[in-house]
Design a protein around this nucleic acid. Structure first.
Lengths: 345, 345
DNA sequence: AACTCACCTGCAAACGTTTGCAGCTACTTC
DNA sequence: GAAGTAGCTGCAAACGTTTGCAGGTGAGTT
């Protein structure tokens, strides 16, 4: 309708005040609105309503240097892990009038840099980083600037940056404990890439979990995947199955790797879970529809997103509050891929 | 590093020219740069380089009224259909220096309105709408304003708006033809919500496909789901299986519904595909890992995203070009959920 | 009655660009 | 050699806000 967009001047004119006063009247913050007479405020607000005035965020942003925009950078939206997280972030931020700028990096540092500078120059008020790389030179640099950053799905070693993540260690611990309770002792681990904090954390969790169960991890029963992919899962599981000391159970670094294990097991003529149990991590959608339905460590992705957004907002509003690090508790979802260890014939 | 950000003035001063000249020199477009002496251009660019100058998109946006930002609004990122599409959009747009603003609506018209005005006021240069509702009052309104809009995954009846979608009709046609070739004649359809253009289109495709095969669709073999969900799939399939004229095959409106069919079939003690064949639509990730692996109509989600972004860019650059409507060809992926019709005992 | 002070409002300068217009130089053209 | 012109560059006004500062009321204090 309103072809020419209505500006603050128009509102001010209609209300019979100076634009400055109108600006203050329309400003939520008491620091501004408190300055102007309540009657005037009412008059201005009525005028704004009448004209269907919406302040121009661009102009405002130019002046205030905040954009009510948050950058969310993830490796790959196609990874089923991320959509619920992003959704959670967006939902929470939308509530507070923020909007999210999305960027995929494929964990490529070139693209990462591109995305980051693009977002920074667009004056995002904060950044949510869901990349899982452990070594992260950009991180230090970013933290130097005054741009608030929240990490998702990873923490930085000294906990100097607010973050929300799941507790990989206890998550994997639950998986190991579950297998031990089923009588397994030859438990293998298909570990994720050790350059990613999740891969490393879960590997560590595996070692600790075994130790807690009084089992000595057998190095020949641990293989390292180069990526969290089905193909790498297949490769690693093949190695394990070909060894002379075949495991009775595999703890996979995530569900993709677990699916790879399924495939390798099938290839070798074995049955899951009759011959070998498998546990995954993440509980991706439809993992209950796999055959067999996958036992997996679930963590509340959506909630992680919500909490991350919450942290972002706190960070924006009170930048010098102490940095929180949040660990959301994982949960073991037991399904059909784990069974009591088969009696050795 | 540069705590105080470097501005155009700084560059101009270093190059010894007026800011206006610097602006023109740095502007890609020949219309501006062509005006200034090549030597000066070089000098300015060198200065910019030296100071690591990045123009402020906000200020620029205020002046030019374009933001190099595109709004992408979808119902729910959590629906596995969308991530690859969004990814495609973002990839293509990033190439051209655009950035995407993401919004979920849950097909709720309130939230839709909120998201849309939020995006509009943030001066997005264009909108990509991936909502599938057929009746869309906002659409007319949006098109009135001069904001370019591209539709994804649906077309509007009179094709007045550029869009990219898959050809639902021929997609379902392929599914029907496949089943017919396997000897099926009692073919049922679990249709998606008819308020969504995909649901309606595929239902229509089913009718046409049957007709093309010389089969008369049996109204008692068509049920309508109220949502594209597993639960609704179960409900609808139960109805079909309980009828006295049990189908030998089901064409589901999408993969969720197909999974629901799986479950209902299992419940009733039947086997897929031995007793009943099932075909889905979308070929969501891991549908090859279901049991049985799902035969489904695939369409190239990622490519859809790419093309949509392409359309957006064209639209932005040449607003009065004829409006394109793009149909990407679907493809039938035959897996284990369809089989030759079982001989009637 | 003069002073202080609190309360409100207006003025004008920003924020960092872009762009129509005008002006200047130096070159062509007759 | 004067007039016209092409080619560059500078000036200043935007774009729509926010905000420090100053001014102008009126009430309260001494």
């Amino acid at each position: 309708m309103s072809s020419r967009s209505v500006t603050l001047r128009d509102v001010a004119k209609l209300a019979g005040v100076h634009p400055a006063t109108a600006s203050r009247a329309l400003n939520e913050e008491a620091r501004a609105r408190g300055l102007v007479n309540p009657d005037t405020v009412a008059r201005v607000m009525r005028a704004a309503q009448e004209l269907d005035y919406h302040p121009d965020p661009v102009a405002r942003s130019l002046k205030t240097r905040r954009s009510h925009t948050v950058g969310v950078v993830i490796p790959d939206l196609t990874n089923p892990l991320f959509p619920p997280i992003v959704r959670g972030i967006e939902d929470r931020l939308a509530q507070s009038g923020y909007v999210v700028l999305l960027g995929n990096t494929d964990n490529d540092s070139e693209r990462e840099k591109l995305v980051l500078t693009s977002m920074r120059s667009r004056r995002v008020d904060a950044l949510v980083l869901a990349t899982a790389r452990r070594r992260y030179n950009l991180l230090a640099e970013l933290n130097l600037s005054d741009l608030p950053v929240v990490l998702v799905n990873r923490v930085v070693d000294d906990r100097a940056i607010p973050s929300v993540a799941t507790d990989d260690v206890t998550g994997i611990g639950m998986a190991v404990a579950h297998l031990v309770a089923l009588g397994h002792t030859r438990i293998a681990h298909v570990a994720g890439p050790q350059a990613l904090s999740t891969g490393a954390g879960r590997h560590n969790g595996f070692l600790l979990g075994m130790e807690a169960a009084g089992l000595e991890p057998d190095p020949s029963l641990i293989t390292f995947a180069e990526a969290f992919s089905v193909a790498e899962g297949v490769r690693c599981a093949r190695v394990l199955l070909a060894g002379r000391n075949r495991p009775s159970a595999i703890v996979a670094g995530n569900d993709m790797l677990a699916i790879g294990c399924y495939q390798a097991i099938e290839e070798s003529g074995l049955k899951c879970p009759a011959d070998i149990s498998v546990v995954g991590f993440n509980d991706i959608p439809f993992s209950n529809r796999l055959s067999p339905p996958l036992t997996s460590v679930r963590f509340p992705h959506y909630q992680v997103g919500i909490e991350a957004a919450q942290l972002v907002l706190e960070r924006i509003n009170t930048p010098d509050a102490p940095t929180k690090v949040l660990f959301l508790p994982p949960e073991l979802v037991v399904r059909g891929s784990t069974a009591r260890v088969s009696p050795v014939p």
